[in-house]
Each structure stands twice: as C-alpha cells, then as structure tokens.
Design a protein around this nucleic acid. Sequence first.
DNA 1: TAAGTAAACTGCACCGGGTAGTTTACTTTG
DNA 2: CAAAGTAAACTACCCGGTGCAGTTTACTTA
Lengths: 201, 201
Amino acid sequence: MALSRSEQKRLDIINAAKLVFKENGVQATSMDKLAEVANVSKRTVYNHFKTKEELVMHLVKELWQKAMLSSEDDYDKTAPLAPQLTKILMKEISLMNSPDYIDLSRVAMGHFLFQPEALQVEIEKFSKQETSLQLWLENATNDGLLTVKNIELAVQQLHGLIKGSCFWPQLLGLCPLLSEQEQINLADESVAMFLARYANS
Amino acid sequence: MALSRSEQKRLDIINAAKLVFKENGVQATSMDKLAEVANVSKRTVYNHFKTKEELVMHLVKELWQKAMLSSEDDYDKTAPLAPQLTKILMKEISLMNSPDYIDLSRVAMGHFLFQPEALQVEIEKFSKQETSLQLWLENATNDGLLTVKNIELAVQQLHGLIKGSCFWPQLLGLCPLLSEQEQINLADESVAMFLARYANS
DNA sequence: TAAGTAAACTGCACCGGGTAGTTTACTTTG
DNA sequence: CAAAGTAAACTACCCGGTGCAGTTTACTTA
C-alpha cells in the first residue's frame, strides 16, 4: 500500500505539525520551523495547506472525529448497570487520557481560547449526534432502572467526574497521565458515585 | 483617599491589561495597543513593569490570591451536613462563575498552556494551604458522619462536578454564566450526589 | 505668592529580530 | 515530460523593548 510521494509529504507535514505545535503552541511556531522539522520545503507546506489556519483546522477536525466516533455500546436491559456504565466510561477515559488526545487538545485550546465564535462554528458541525453515553442513560432511564430527571445534567456530571481527574490536570501539565489501574479506579469511583445518586434500588 | 498620579497610572495600566488581554490573549496583544487603551505612553508602561511577562504575572498573582482567600467555614458537628456543604460549594461556585475570574483564568491559561514548568512554579507558591473544602471533609470524616477513604479524590470529585458546569464551559465560551438560581441548583445537585455516595445513613 | 525641584509622564524615533506568505529559478520523480 | 519538490531570497509587515529631549505634576522653599 505505497503512498505516492505527494501523499507521503503531506503526512510528513501533518506529523511535524502535531509534533511542533504541541511544544509551543500554534502562535509561537513559525512555518519555517515547521517545514524544517517536516523535512520539506516551505513551499510544499503551502502547496498542501493554503494557510497556517487551514493546517490547524485540519488537525482539529482529526481530533474531533476521533472523539466523536461512537462505538456501538449496546445497552442491555437485563445485565447489571455498573459494568455497562464502567465500560462506557473506560472508553472515554482511555481516549481522553492518551498523549495524542491531550496534546492536540492543548493545541486546539490554545488556538480557540480567544476565538469562541470560531469554536462554536466547529462544534456545531459535529454536535448533531448524541453521545453513546447519553443514549445509554436515556435507555436505562426509560426502562426505570435509573431515576434521572435531567439527563443533560447527568451527562455533564459524569464528564465532570472523569475530566476533573483524567483530562484537565493533564492538559495543564499538573498531573502525569493515569496508569491503566488508575483509569479503572477512576471509572469505578465515578460509576459508584453516579449510581449511588441515580440507581433505583 | 486620593491616589497619587503614579498610582493612578499604574491602575490604568492594570485595568487596561485585564481588558485588552481578555479579548485576544497575551500573545496577540501588543504593548503599543495596551498603552493606547490605558491612555498612557508606552514608556510609562515599561516604567511600571519591566517586561510584558512581569505584567502578566502581576495579574495572575492577583487571580490566585482571590481564589485562595479562605474564609472561616465553620464545621459544625451537630448541624445537618447538606446545608453546610452547600454553603461551601456556593462560595466556590459564585467565585469561579464570575466574569472577572473566568476572563483572568482564560488569560492565565492561554499564557501557561505551553509553559507547564512556569505554572508549576507559580502554583507551588500558593499550594501550601489546604482548602476549606478539604478541611471540612476531614472533619466530617473524622467524626464518622462521612465515609471517605480517599479525601483527595473526594475533593477532586466535588470540584469536577462543579467546574464541569460552572467553569470550563464558560472558560471556553460554550455556555453563558450561571444565574443565581442555576448556581444554587448546581450546588444542590452536587451535594446530593456527593452525600448519596459518602454520607452515613 | 512666586520660583524651584525631583520624579513621573510623554511622544517618537529606533533597533534587532521575527513572521506569513510569495516568487523565482532550478531539480527530482513517476 | 509534466507534476511536484527544493532552496533561497524577498515583501511587507509586526513586536518587545530602549533612549532621549522635553513637559507635566505635586510639593517645597524663599
């Protein structure tokens, strides 16, 4: 499955961008530096991406798609709730706690922090689809296994519990990534708290 | 209490910095622009602050001090837990959900995102003191009113529940600030979930 | 009350350096 | 040989920070 030379160069540029943006952010990284790291002439960079902005957007979209790819988390009416929910959370945790995701999120955040309109635009392109977590909660609530009055709030609570330990501290460089065991503990603790509040006995 | 002219100019500069940094961030704001907004000559800016960095740091320290000023939240062994915890959370929520705090946090985040070492240094200067939330949890646990095995985790969980609704979305410009009623609801919901998990019946 | 003084402020030119994006003339590769 | 890549110079800026001559302010002395 050989890539054409052009395709290869394109990948070199994208990989170099990820590498170099994550070190100092977008603004502080020049296109000259980027081309140098990619081992590509600056003109080639501009042949593949019209502007710096376009290159950044390409990376951001890649990130979004990764975060949004919804796997089929089958909701099972008869199985115990805790393991099902744990499985869903583990999937989110292991994604958000990966180096690539953190690094790219930092880049995106640095880029969008002061352009909320642009961020809104990007988000709306993807926010049509419900998350698998939300669907699961809706199913379990409709079957009377949970008592959740406000599903949006519940989703936000679960995400808050998770991200507060496995995403934001790492994004800010205040904590190292979680080990596999720590990830499992976090999922279990989050599920325990959530079900203590919402599960029907 | 009249301020000397120099003190007044200094305040003008600081206020202009808050105003102008919050619009486009630190990197994207020139010192010429800042001086113009402050109605002060650029030379005067540099007379008060040796470098741009020093000015930014001044703002950040101001933010930290506001966030850290711990009030005496008296723990009361005999009173019901929920209202006590709600009160503490409300104080944190109303601080974190204020425009000044959000705006300055955004500036600080944009500045430190790619300088984790510098952030570490700043944080360590302030992180000696325990938060009032942590103290309260320790007291309630020692008195057997709560069963919390891991207090640090519990603190992080509470902060996650709160910040996930009243801080991070606003920092990113995805949600408007919470109304007083929404703040109260958030505090109540967070307390309800927390106590459902940890309170001894 | 008038003259003097030190400190702070102003405005502007200036410096060294950096950047996004373009152009050109030439070379490599499929 | 046509499409893509290369190196290097080039345009047209912007920015942090400094130096300096001259002015304003507030306060004090004669």
